[in-house]
Simulated assay, not measured.
Amino acid sequence: MTTLRAGLIGLGMMGRHHARVLGSLEGVELVAVADPGGDVHGVAGGRPVLGTIEELLDQRLDYCMVAAPTGLHEEIGLQLAEAGVHCMVEKPLAHDTASAERLAAAYTEKGLVGAVGHIERYNPALQQARARIEAGDLGDIYQVATRRQGPFPGRIADVGVVKDLGTHDIDLTAWVTQQEYVSMSARTTTRSGRPHEDMVSAVGLLSKGTITSHLVNWLSPLKERTTVITGEKGAFVADTLHADLTFFANGNVETTWDDVSRFRGVSEGDVVRYAFPKPEPLRVEHEAFRDAVLGKESDIVTMEQGLATVRVAEAMIESARTGQVITL
C-alpha cells in the first residue's frame, strides 16, 4: 500500500483522537500537526507541532484532517484546496450554507477528495441498520426519530446545538434512509445564557414520505444517543452509545386478552438484538477517507452531502426564528 503523508490541524478534544488514529493508520504517515495553542493534550508523539497552516503545507502533505473550530473551516479548507491537498473536515462542513458551498465547489473544481467527518455514519449499529433497510428488512420506512441529549460542552462556543449535535442526526437520517429532506419545522430555546440555541425539537419530511423527529439538547444530565426507525415490518432501535441494534418485529400472534390487546396497537412480535463486529467508528472513517484518496471505491461523506446537512440545519434555525415550515 502507498504511504500517504497526512497532516492534522487542531489538537483539541476531537483533534487528539484524530491524532491517535492517524498515528496508527496503515498506509498513512502522520508527518506533523498544527495548532496555535500547542499540543495541550500531548498527542503529537514526537512529531513537529506547528503554529500555522503554511508551516504544515511545507511538509508536502497528501491530505489533511481539519479539527479546528467550525468558524475556521472555510478559511483552512480553501487554503488546503489551493495547495492541492485532499481534506477531511470535522462536521459540520462550515458555519453557514454560503461557506459550505464555497468549500464544496473548491474541492470539485480542483479535482480533490473532500469529505466531512460525520462519524455517526460509521457507527456499527447504524451501518447495520442501513444495510438491513436496504435489504428490505423493515419494508417501507415510515418514521425516523432521534434523541441526542447530554450535558453542556464548554468547549463549543461558535455554533449552537443544531449545527454541533443536530447535524449528526440530519446526516444519519438522510443516509440510513437514502432520502433527502424536503421540509423542516423546529422550535429552539436558549437557557445557558449564550448567544446560540442549546435545545431544539424538530420535525422533518423526507423525499419518499418518511417523517422525522429530532430532539437535541445540551441541557440534560442524561446522555442519550438513540435512533428509532419504524417501518411496515417493525422497528429498529439503534443505541449508538453502545453500538447496539435491536429489531422489534411486528407479530401475527393474536392477543386474546381484551384488557391488554386494546392498548397494543400493532401486534407484538419477536425482539432480536443483533450480534455483529464493532470496530471503532473513527478508525473506520479514516480508513474510508484514506481509500478515497488512493482512488479506491469508498463510502465517505462528501462535501456535497455535508453541504446538504448544513442547509437542513439552517432550515431548522430559520423555522425556529420565523415559526414557519421551511421548504428545502
Rank of each mutant, 00 (worst) to 15 (best):
M13R: 11
M13G: 00
M14H: 08
H17E: 06
A19I: 05
V21A: 01
E26M: 05
E26A: 07
H41C: 06
H41A: 11
G42R: 09
A44R: 07
A44Y: 02
A44M: 07
R47Q: 09
V49I: 05
T52W: 00
E54W: 12
E54N: 13
E55I: 00
L57Y: 01
L57T: 05
R60D: 13
R60L: 06
Y63F: 15
V66W: 06
A68T: 06
A68F: 01
T70I: 15
L72W: 02
L78W: 01
L78H: 01
L80D: 01
A81K: 01
C87S: 07
M88Q: 04
E90T: 04
K91Y: 07
L93V: 01
L93A: 01
H95G: 14
H95Q: 09
A98W: 09
S99E: 07
A100L: 03
A100M: 05
R102M: 02
A104H: 00
A105V: 03
A105M: 02
K110E: 03
G117H: 01
I119F: 02
Y122G: 09
L126I: 02
A131D: 04
I133F: 08
G136P: 08
G136T: 03
D140W: 13
I141F: 10
Y142D: 14
T146P: 09
G150A: 07
P153I: 00
V159S: 02
V161C: 05
D164P: 03
L165F: 15
G166E: 04
D169G: 00
I170P: 12
D171C: 15
D171F: 08
A174M: 15
T177A: 08
E180K: 15
Y181V: 09
Y181A: 11
S183K: 10
M184D: 04
A186H: 03
T188L: 14
T188V: 14
T189V: 13
T190M: 13
G193H: 13
D198C: 13
V200N: 06
A202F: 00
G204T: 05
L206G: 08
S207Y: 01
N217I: 04
N217S: 09
T227N: 07
E232M: 10
V237E: 05
F247Y: 15
N250Y: 05
T255M: 07
D258E: 08
D259R: 11
V260C: 07
R264A: 11
G265R: 10
D270S: 09
V272Q: 07
P277A: 06
R283C: 09
H286R: 12
K296Q: 12
D299T: 13
D299P: 14
M303P: 12
M303S: 12
E304Q: 15
Q305T: 02
T309M: 09
T309A: 15
I317D: 13
I317Q: 14
I326Q: 02
I326N: 02
I326W: 00
T327I: 11
L328A: 03
